[in-house]
């Protein structure tokens, strides 16, 4: 069995163990459906899938542990390293914006929340000043709204705040 073609990434071992735990949980939930009552019961196939997941996650753990570790910069803690390489500030800010956007969607409706999301994320990622971000956000949203709401007649969330 050949090991990973690349050095192990920060957090990869923990992730592999989390997948194992998740697989165990799925297997337990699958077992609860109908146990081992018959060869054609509703739970057989979910259990098979969970068993494959279990097997594959054990293999993944073995392979991950055999891989050469990623060379950390000296003096950097594991957590710091994970932050830098896997979830840098870009990702954290963007995911936070995403979560805020989807929550706002239900209350504020599509147009307002999408506009705010576009404006803030473009201002953050593109960094050409607020005016440029404002123009792109407004322009992009108008195009999307015209194409999807007016031409494709897709229903978009209205938001309960304005009803």
């Amino acid at each position: 069995m050949n090991i990973l073609p690349r050095p192990r990434q920060p957090g990869e071992t923990i992730f592999a163990y989390l997948l194992l735990l998740f697989s165990l949980f799925v297997f337990w939930e699958a077992y609860k459906i109908s146990g081992f009552s018959s060869a054609s019961s509703a739970g057989v196939f979910p259990m098979c899938a969970a068993a494959v997941m279990l097997f594959a996650s054990v293999l993944t753990i073995v392979r991950t542990q055999r891989a050469t570790a990623y060379q950390r910069e000296p003096g950097l803690s594991k957590v710091r390293d994970f932050r830098n390489k896997i979830v840098p500030a870009n990702i954290i800010v963007f995911v936070a914006l995403l979560v805020a956007y989807t929550i706002a969607l239900d209350a504020a409706g599509f147009l307002l929340s999408s506009f705010l999301f576009l404006f803030l994320s473009i201002a953050y990622l593109y960094r050409r000043g607020p005016l440029v971000a404002l123009l792109i956000a407004a322009g992009g949203l108008v195009v999307i709204y015209v194409v999807f709401r007016m031409i494709f007649t897709v229903v978009l969330p209205k938001g309960w705040l304005f009803q």
């Binding site: 963007f94 599509f110 576009l118 992009g140 897709v154």
Partner: peptide
């Protein structure tokens, strides 16, 4: 990409909601 990525998100949301 700084413009493209937020637009992908909006399209994904519109697509999922619809």
């Amino acid at each position: 990409k700084g413009v493209l990525i937020p637009l992908i998100v909006i399209l994904s949301v519109v697509g999922t909601y619809s």
